[in-house]
Amino acid sequence: MGKAERSKTAREKIREQQAAERAREQRKKVVTYVTAGAVAIAAIGAGMWYTMSRSQSEQAGADLAPVTIQADGSVIMAKDGVTKPVVDIYEDFQCPACKELERVSGQTFKNLAAEGLAKVVYHPITIFGQEPTKGNSVRAGAAARCVPDGKQWVAFHDLLFENQPSESVEGFKTDQLIEWGKEAGVTDPGFETCVTSQKHAQAQLDYSDKINKRENLEGTPTVKVDGQMIDNSVVFTPKDLRDTVTEAAK
Protein backbone atom coordinates (compact mmCIF):
# COMPACT_ATOMS: atom_id res chain seq x y z
CA MET A 1 0.00 0.00 0.00
CA GLY A 2 1.43 3.33 -1.03
CA LYS A 3 1.81 6.37 1.19
CA ALA A 4 -1.17 8.13 -0.40
CA GLU A 5 -3.41 5.13 0.18
CA ARG A 6 -2.29 4.82 3.81
CA SER A 7 -3.02 8.54 4.31
CA LYS A 8 -6.46 8.12 2.78
CA THR A 9 -7.23 5.15 5.04
CA ALA A 10 -6.15 7.13 8.09
CA ARG A 11 -8.41 10.02 7.12
CA GLU A 12 -11.33 7.65 6.65
CA LYS A 13 -10.74 6.13 10.07
CA ILE A 14 -10.68 9.59 11.62
CA ARG A 15 -13.93 10.51 9.86
CA GLU A 16 -15.50 7.26 11.04
CA GLN A 17 -14.39 7.93 14.62
CA GLN A 18 -15.72 11.47 14.42
CA ALA A 19 -19.06 10.22 13.06
CA ALA A 20 -19.27 7.61 15.82
CA GLU A 21 -18.50 10.24 18.42
CA ARG A 22 -21.22 12.54 17.05
CA ALA A 23 -23.69 9.64 17.13
CA ARG A 24 -22.79 8.92 20.77
CA GLU A 25 -23.24 12.59 21.68
CA GLN A 26 -26.60 12.67 19.91
CA ARG A 27 -27.76 9.58 21.80
CA LYS A 28 -26.65 11.14 25.07
CA LYS A 29 -28.66 14.28 24.27
CA VAL A 30 -31.74 12.25 23.42
CA VAL A 31 -31.44 10.30 26.68
CA THR A 32 -31.00 13.56 28.58
CA TYR A 33 -34.05 15.13 26.94
CA VAL A 34 -36.18 12.06 27.56
CA THR A 35 -35.04 11.85 31.18
CA ALA A 36 -35.70 15.55 31.75
CA GLY A 37 -39.11 15.21 30.12
CA ALA A 38 -39.97 12.23 32.30
CA VAL A 39 -38.89 14.13 35.41
CA ALA A 40 -40.95 17.14 34.35
CA ILE A 41 -44.00 14.98 33.67
CA ALA A 42 -43.53 13.24 37.01
CA ALA A 43 -43.25 16.60 38.76
CA ILE A 44 -46.39 17.87 37.07
CA GLY A 45 -48.17 14.64 37.95
CA ALA A 46 -47.04 14.88 41.57
CA GLY A 47 -48.17 18.51 41.70
CA MET A 48 -51.55 17.65 40.26
CA TRP A 49 -51.94 14.74 42.69
CA TYR A 50 -51.00 16.99 45.61
CA THR A 51 -53.48 19.65 44.55
CA MET A 52 -56.25 17.14 43.91
CA SER A 53 -55.64 15.37 47.21
CA ARG A 54 -56.10 18.65 49.07
CA SER A 55 -59.17 19.73 47.13
CA GLN A 56 -60.94 16.39 47.18
CA SER A 57 -64.14 16.36 49.22
CA GLU A 58 -64.16 14.19 52.30
CA GLN A 59 -66.29 11.09 52.62
CA ALA A 60 -68.96 10.86 55.28
CA GLY A 61 -67.47 9.63 58.51
CA ALA A 62 -69.27 8.87 61.75
CA ASP A 63 -72.87 9.83 62.46
CA LEU A 64 -73.65 13.51 62.74
CA ALA A 65 -72.78 15.27 65.95
CA PRO A 66 -75.86 16.39 67.91
CA VAL A 67 -77.65 19.24 66.11
CA THR A 68 -79.45 21.94 68.10
CA ILE A 69 -81.72 24.53 66.50
CA GLN A 70 -81.47 27.90 68.25
CA ALA A 71 -84.33 30.33 68.81
CA ASP A 72 -82.71 32.92 66.55
CA GLY A 73 -82.55 30.51 63.59
CA SER A 74 -78.89 29.55 63.85
CA VAL A 75 -78.05 25.87 64.18
CA ILE A 76 -75.30 24.32 66.29
CA MET A 77 -73.62 21.03 65.42
CA ALA A 78 -71.29 19.80 68.16
CA LYS A 79 -70.58 16.87 70.41
CA ASP A 80 -71.42 17.29 74.08
CA GLY A 81 -68.81 19.36 75.89
CA VAL A 82 -67.16 20.72 72.73
CA THR A 83 -67.16 24.49 72.92
CA LYS A 84 -64.16 25.42 70.75
CA PRO A 85 -62.96 26.14 68.25
CA VAL A 86 -66.16 27.70 66.96
CA VAL A 87 -66.62 27.48 63.20
CA ASP A 88 -69.28 29.95 62.05
CA ILE A 89 -70.71 29.45 58.56
CA TYR A 90 -72.64 32.39 57.11
CA GLU A 91 -74.56 31.24 54.06
CA ASP A 92 -77.52 32.03 51.85
CA PHE A 93 -79.52 29.17 50.33
CA GLN A 94 -79.81 31.17 47.08
CA CYS A 95 -76.07 31.93 46.87
CA PRO A 96 -74.29 29.87 44.13
CA ALA A 97 -70.93 30.12 45.90
CA CYS A 98 -72.56 28.78 49.06
CA LYS A 99 -73.89 25.83 47.08
CA GLU A 100 -70.36 25.16 45.85
CA LEU A 101 -68.97 25.42 49.38
CA GLU A 102 -71.48 22.84 50.55
CA ARG A 103 -70.58 20.56 47.66
CA VAL A 104 -66.83 20.84 48.24
CA SER A 105 -66.41 21.30 52.00
CA GLY A 106 -69.81 20.57 53.52
CA GLN A 107 -68.79 17.09 54.59
CA THR A 108 -65.61 18.41 56.19
CA PHE A 109 -67.66 20.65 58.49
CA LYS A 110 -69.85 17.69 59.45
CA ASN A 111 -66.86 15.40 60.03
CA LEU A 112 -65.02 17.94 62.18
CA ALA A 113 -68.08 18.27 64.41
CA ALA A 114 -68.62 14.50 64.54
CA GLU A 115 -64.97 13.98 65.52
CA GLY A 116 -65.29 16.46 68.36
CA LEU A 117 -62.78 18.82 66.77
CA ALA A 118 -65.08 21.82 66.40
CA LYS A 119 -68.37 23.43 67.30
CA VAL A 120 -69.95 24.23 63.95
CA VAL A 121 -72.59 26.94 63.80
CA TYR A 122 -74.72 27.52 60.70
CA HIS A 123 -76.16 30.98 60.07
CA PRO A 124 -78.67 30.87 57.18
CA ILE A 125 -79.18 34.49 56.13
CA THR A 126 -80.53 36.51 53.21
CA ILE A 127 -78.03 38.79 51.49
CA PHE A 128 -79.93 39.57 48.30
CA GLY A 129 -81.93 42.76 47.91
CA GLN A 130 -83.35 42.30 44.42
CA GLU A 131 -86.02 39.94 43.14
CA PRO A 132 -86.33 37.12 42.42
CA THR A 133 -83.25 36.18 44.48
CA LYS A 134 -84.41 37.93 47.65
CA GLY A 135 -87.78 36.19 47.67
CA ASN A 136 -86.18 32.83 46.89
CA SER A 137 -83.75 33.23 49.76
CA VAL A 138 -86.38 34.36 52.26
CA ARG A 139 -88.73 31.48 51.42
CA ALA A 140 -85.95 28.94 51.80
CA GLY A 141 -84.64 30.45 55.03
CA ALA A 142 -88.11 30.74 56.51
CA ALA A 143 -88.90 27.14 55.57
CA ALA A 144 -85.71 25.91 57.24
CA ARG A 145 -86.94 27.57 60.42
CA CYS A 146 -90.04 25.36 60.24
CA VAL A 147 -87.99 22.17 60.69
CA PRO A 148 -88.06 21.22 64.39
CA ASP A 149 -85.54 18.35 64.43
CA GLY A 150 -81.78 18.86 64.13
CA LYS A 151 -80.90 15.95 61.85
CA GLN A 152 -83.89 16.69 59.66
CA TRP A 153 -82.74 20.30 59.48
CA VAL A 154 -79.31 19.22 58.19
CA ALA A 155 -80.93 16.98 55.57
CA PHE A 156 -83.26 19.81 54.52
CA HIS A 157 -80.33 22.24 54.45
CA ASP A 158 -78.45 19.94 52.06
CA LEU A 159 -81.50 19.46 49.82
CA LEU A 160 -81.99 23.22 49.51
CA PHE A 161 -78.48 23.61 48.13
CA GLU A 162 -78.84 20.58 45.86
CA ASN A 163 -82.02 22.06 44.39
CA GLN A 164 -80.94 25.69 44.34
CA PRO A 165 -82.74 27.58 41.54
CA SER A 166 -81.12 29.91 39.06
CA GLU A 167 -80.67 33.48 40.22
CA SER A 168 -82.79 34.66 37.29
CA VAL A 169 -85.99 32.76 38.05
CA GLU A 170 -88.48 32.44 40.88
CA GLY A 171 -87.68 29.30 42.82
CA PHE A 172 -87.87 27.65 46.22
CA LYS A 173 -91.65 27.63 45.78
CA THR A 174 -93.63 26.55 48.82
CA ASP A 175 -94.86 23.29 47.31
CA GLN A 176 -91.26 22.37 46.46
CA LEU A 177 -90.10 23.26 49.97
CA ILE A 178 -92.81 21.07 51.48
CA GLU A 179 -91.84 18.15 49.26
CA TRP A 180 -88.15 18.49 50.16
CA GLY A 181 -89.14 18.64 53.83
CA LYS A 182 -90.83 15.28 53.48
CA GLU A 183 -87.75 13.94 51.68
CA ALA A 184 -85.63 15.14 54.62
CA GLY A 185 -87.83 13.13 56.98
CA VAL A 186 -89.91 15.96 58.45
CA THR A 187 -93.16 14.56 59.88
CA ASP A 188 -94.19 17.46 62.12
CA PRO A 189 -97.89 18.15 61.36
CA GLY A 190 -97.34 21.91 61.49
CA PHE A 191 -94.52 21.97 58.94
CA GLU A 192 -96.67 22.37 55.83
CA THR A 193 -98.72 25.23 57.26
CA CYS A 194 -95.56 26.90 58.56
CA VAL A 195 -93.97 26.80 55.12
CA THR A 196 -97.08 27.82 53.20
CA SER A 197 -97.80 30.81 55.45
CA GLN A 198 -94.13 31.84 55.51
CA LYS A 199 -94.54 32.21 59.24
CA HIS A 200 -90.86 32.94 59.82
CA ALA A 201 -90.19 35.22 56.82
CA GLN A 202 -89.84 38.38 58.88
CA ALA A 203 -87.69 36.60 61.46
CA GLN A 204 -85.41 35.51 58.60
CA LEU A 205 -85.07 39.10 57.40
CA ASP A 206 -84.53 40.49 60.90
CA TYR A 207 -81.85 37.91 61.71
CA SER A 208 -80.12 38.55 58.39
CA ASP A 209 -80.02 42.29 59.06
CA LYS A 210 -78.68 41.71 62.55
CA ILE A 211 -75.94 39.33 61.39
CA ASN A 212 -74.89 41.48 58.44
CA LYS A 213 -74.41 44.48 60.72
CA ARG A 214 -72.83 42.61 63.62
CA GLU A 215 -70.36 40.62 61.53
CA ASN A 216 -69.83 43.29 58.87
CA LEU A 217 -70.15 40.65 56.19
CA GLU A 218 -69.05 41.43 52.66
CA GLY A 219 -70.91 38.47 51.21
CA THR A 220 -71.54 34.77 51.47
CA PRO A 221 -70.18 32.30 52.07
CA THR A 222 -68.15 33.62 54.97
CA VAL A 223 -66.49 31.20 57.36
CA LYS A 224 -64.92 32.26 60.64
CA VAL A 225 -62.92 30.24 63.14
CA ASP A 226 -63.07 31.69 66.63
CA GLY A 227 -64.15 34.99 65.12
CA GLN A 228 -61.38 35.18 62.53
CA MET A 229 -62.44 35.12 58.89
CA ILE A 230 -60.85 32.30 56.90
CA ASP A 231 -59.74 32.97 53.36
CA ASN A 232 -61.86 31.32 50.68
CA SER A 233 -58.80 29.60 49.24
CA VAL A 234 -58.68 27.64 52.51
CA VAL A 235 -62.43 27.24 52.93
CA PHE A 236 -62.80 25.71 49.47
CA THR A 237 -59.88 23.30 50.01
CA PRO A 238 -61.05 20.56 52.41
CA LYS A 239 -57.55 19.50 53.49
CA ASP A 240 -56.51 23.08 54.27
CA LEU A 241 -59.81 23.72 56.01
CA ARG A 242 -59.34 20.67 58.19
CA ASP A 243 -55.74 21.65 59.00
CA THR A 244 -56.82 25.18 59.97
CA VAL A 245 -59.58 24.00 62.29
CA THR A 246 -57.47 21.21 63.77
CA GLU A 247 -54.69 23.68 64.54
CA ALA A 248 -57.19 25.97 66.25
CA ALA A 249 -58.41 23.05 68.36
CA LYS A 250 -54.97 22.53 69.95
Rank of each mutant, 00 (worst) to 15 (best):
A118G: 13
V169N: 13
C95L: 01
C98F: 01
E115C: 00
L177S: 10
P132D: 14
V86C: 11
L117F: 09
P132E: 15
E192V: 13
C194G: 13
I125D: 01
L177W: 06
T126P: 04
A143M: 12
W180G: 00
Q130R: 08
Q94P: 04
G106I: 00
L160H: 07
S137K: 05
K99Q: 09
R139W: 03
Q152G: 06
D188H: 04
A97D: 12
D175S: 15
K119F: 05
E167K: 02
K182W: 07
Q202L: 01
A140G: 08
S137A: 14
L160K: 10
H157P: 05
E179F: 07
V120W: 03
G116D: 09
D92Q: 03
T126I: 13
V138K: 05
V186E: 00
F109M: 13
V195W: 10
N163F: 10
T133Y: 02
N136Y: 05
F172T: 14
F128D: 13
W180M: 04
A114R: 06
F93H: 11
L117W: 11
Q107D: 02
V138C: 00
V147T: 04
V87I: 10
R103P: 01
E100W: 01
E102T: 01
S197V: 12
H200K: 11
Q164R: 13
I125T: 09
E179L: 08
A144H: 06
Q152I: 13
C194D: 11
N136Q: 11
E100D: 14
P85A: 14
Q202W: 01
P148C: 05
H200A: 14
T174S: 12
K134C: 07
Y122E: 03
F161N: 07
F109Q: 01
L177N: 10
L101E: 05
P132A: 15
H157F: 15
E192K: 07
G116I: 04
V195K: 00
I127Q: 01
L101K: 00
T133R: 11
N163Y: 12
E170L: 10
Q164T: 11
H200W: 07
Q130M: 08
G181F: 10
A114G: 12
T174W: 04
V87G: 13
I125M: 02
K84E: 15
V121G: 08
Y90Q: 11
F109C: 01
N136T: 14
K99E: 04
